[in-house]
């Protein structure tokens, strides 16, 4: 908030903006991340759902054409990477892409917009106790929530493609093949390698997205600090615009990377070593 920035300086400003609005349920619940992401998810499914309901095979409306371009883009990416039944994979990729794009795009909204809204509607006293982070993907809970869900989907794909026994056997015999007693000796090594390989996937997915968005948000906050002084106001505005334009690329790119890696992992999980 502007008032606190004046009293507390840049340090407090940033600390304030990096604090989640936590409600104390169990281990705590980041209401801001959850609510913003849920609203954005609803925007996505309602928008696409309405277009899908009215979808016509004839000449499409501009809105339908736009939605179809996105769907076909995602489907084309999936088709290039994953050779199999795409009926469940493309919707998954589409959801990941659109949801993460929406959540990442929250970074482009003004940092102090939620604070200002609370301040003007509910007054300064409420605003003092309200924290609101706009970017759900700059919250590790969100990125890990998605990537761990993807991890279970990967497990499901691996088991459905190879069977429970085949998958278990692969965990023990790949990547190092051997025969006889050597195979038994190598089994723990293989199992360890596979566990690492499997766990790395959700962790890297979540960390990459979280790091990019958290870093981007932090840079926006530092630039916002420049705007507090009249000396750095003009360079601050220029830097803010430059970073925002660059951030459009990151917003789309990170969502795309998350989507395409998910598809690559699914394709990998379905084929044997």
């Amino acid at each position: 908030m502007a008032t606190e920035a004046a009293t507390g300086g840049l340090n407090e400003y940033i600390t304030h903006h990096l604090t989640h609005h936590v409600i104390s349920v169990g281990s705590g619940f980041n209401l801001d991340s959850w609510l913003v992401s849920l609203l954005l998810g609803l925007v996505f499914v309602i928008w696409f759902g309405l277009k899908a309901r009215k979808a016509t095979a004839g000449v499409p409306s501009k809105g339908q054409a736009f939605v179809e371009i996105i769907v076909e883009f995602v489907d084309g990416q999936v088709k290039d990477t994953f050779h199999g039944d795409r009926r469940s994979v493309t919707p998954l990729a589409l959801t990941i892409f659109m949801w993460i794009v929406f959540m990442n795009a929250m970074d482009l909204l003004p940092l102090d917009l939620p604070g200002w809204l609370v301040h003007t509607t509910a007054g300064a006293e409420t605003a003092h106790h309200t924290y609101w982070r706009l970017v759900p993907t700059a919250d590790l809970n969100t990125t890990l929530g998605i990537s761990v869900s993807v991890f279970f989907i990967l497990l499901g794909h691996a088991i459905s493609a190879k069977g429970g026994f085949g998958f278990g056997k692969e965990l023990l015999t790949a990547p190092f093949h051997a025969h006889g007693p050597a195979a038994i000796a190598l089994a723990p090594v293989n199992l360890f390698m596979n566990i690492v390989e499997w766990l790395v996937k959700p962790v890297s997915l979540a960390m990459r997205l979280f790091g990019n968005m958290y870093g981007g948000e932090l840079v926006f906050m530092l630039i916002a600090g420049m705007l507090a002084s009249s000396v750095t106001l003009v360079p601050g505005i220029i830097a803010n615009a430059a970073w925002a334009i660059f951030h459009i690329l990151i917003v789309l790119l990170q969502a795309f990377i998350f989507m395409i890696l998910t598809v690559v992992y699914i394709a990998g999980a379905r084929e044997g070593h």
Partner: peptide, 8 residues
């Protein structure tokens, strides 16, 4: 990491 994880 807290309950938000499961919510998401």
């Amino acid at each position: 990491i807290n309950l938000t994880f499961f919510g998401q």
